[in-house]
Design a protein around this nucleic acid. Sequence first.
DNA 1: AGTTATTTAGTTGTACACAATTTAATTTTA
DNA 2: TAAAATTAAATTGTGTACAACTAAATAACT
Lengths: 146, 146
Amino acid sequence: MKSETLKLENQICFKIYTAEREITKLYRELLKELNVTYPQYLVLLLLWEKHSLSVKELGQRLFLDSGTLTPMLKRMEMNGLVERKRSEQDERSVIVSVTEKGNALKEKAECIPSQLVDNIPMGKEELSTLNETLTSMLEQLQNHSK
Amino acid sequence: MKSETLKLENQICFKIYTAEREITKLYRELLKELNVTYPQYLVLLLLWEKHSLSVKELGQRLFLDSGTLTPMLKRMEMNGLVERKRSEQDERSVIVSVTEKGNALKEKAECIPSQLVDNIPMGKEELSTLNETLTSMLEQLQNHSK
DNA sequence: AGTTATTTAGTTGTACACAATTTAATTTTA
DNA sequence: TAAAATTAAATTGTGTACAACTAAATAACT
């Protein structure tokens, strides 16, 4: 019937689908204390670096559109983590910046990467191979969807 | 632990998160003709093999709980793809079986794996390495979440 | 047997994710 | 420069995910 490659391919997609949910589940635990979700944590990671970014820029970095970001950023604003303000140079654009409260979470978040590693112990070699594979896979996928 | 490794883990998690969405997006296109979503397609894959499974068994295979499955299966039932019926041996259990209409989609779906591979060209070697890595990663993750 | 514990689906509420559409602001171009 | 095209967010509607809870059936135990 089907070639092995095709079958394997299916398994890999399912495994990525499953891994994503398991990783999110793990982050949920680690982030519980911060009272943020994983996507919100990703926004914070960016804002801890750059302090403020437009919705568009956040979307470009996270590959999310306004349909996802707008409500999420509103929730974060409601929780006092970020501020949203129309740009004065370009009124179409909305600038999101991290508040003091949002910045304060950075300290609490310091330990998260190491806790993560504790739960997914992998060799250095394996890690970088996986990283490269995912990178090229993502390139293929994102090339296509554009 | 070196900060290099910590950062890499974080990046890998983000890439898996992103890859999952890109893969789902690709499937969305491929499955548009069948009028099913990727998770629904996964259910069909199982039912094409086994004809009927309980909600519990579906959940065990897909790592999804009734909170996700029940509404999804109801949508599939509404679309005429599956049937849901209480088991007579055990009234707690609900048996989901594929209908003729659901089975008819199998033919249309045959071409999907190869179309998928066309969009993610990867070497056999790389593919099986990725598969192994994800498998062990999943084991770690699922062990932990118990 | 009768009570307690466990199991199985379903329900409720929250939070993404994204397609499709809308609105308003800015660019482009005719 | 006025009209057309483009851009940036927001909105609307659908479909997962999952935690927490409920209800009903079955199993286990005294």
